[in-house]
Amino acid sequence: MSRLDTATRLAVLGSPISHSKSPELHLAAYEVLGLPWAYERVEIDDQALAPFIESRDASWRGLSLTMPLKQTIQPLLDQVDRIGSLTGAVNTVLFEWGGDAVHRSGFNTDVPGIVRALNAVGVETVRHVHVLGGGATAASAIVAAGELGAESVQVSVRTPQRAESLRPLAAAVGLTFSIGAFDEPHADEPTDLVVSTLPGGAEVPITFDAALRAHAPLLDVAYEPWPTQLGAAWADAGGTVLGGLAMLVHQALLQVRIFAGGDPFAPLADEASVLAAMLAAVGLGADGRPRDGH
Rank of each mutant, 00 (worst) to 15 (best):
R3M: 09
R3D: 12
T6A: 15
T8C: 11
H19F: 12
K21Q: 14
S22H: 12
A28D: 10
Y30I: 00
P36F: 07
D45Y: 13
D46K: 09
L49A: 05
S59K: 01
L65Q: 03
L69T: 05
L69R: 04
V80M: 15
V80P: 14
S85C: 12
V90P: 00
A101V: 13
V102G: 01
R104M: 15
P112W: 11
A117Y: 02
G122A: 03
V123H: 04
E124P: 02
E124F: 08
V131R: 00
G134C: 06
G135R: 05
A138L: 08
A141G: 10
I142A: 05
S152L: 13
V153N: 03
Q154C: 09
A163M: 07
A163K: 07
E164G: 04
S165P: 06
G174A: 11
T176A: 11
T176K: 05
F177Q: 03
F177M: 04
S178E: 11
I179L: 15
E184G: 07
H186L: 13
H186S: 12
S196Q: 02
A210F: 12
H215K: 14
H215Q: 12
L218D: 04
D220P: 00
D220N: 04
V221W: 00
P227A: 07
L230T: 02
G231L: 10
W234R: 04
A237R: 02
L242S: 03
G243D: 14
A246E: 08
M247L: 15
M247T: 02
M247P: 01
A252F: 06
I258Y: 06
A260I: 06
G261Q: 14
G261V: 06
D263R: 06
P264Y: 08
A266V: 12
L268F: 09
A272I: 10
S273R: 12
A277S: 13
M278C: 14
L279R: 05
G283I: 07
L284Q: 05
G285P: 10
R291I: 11
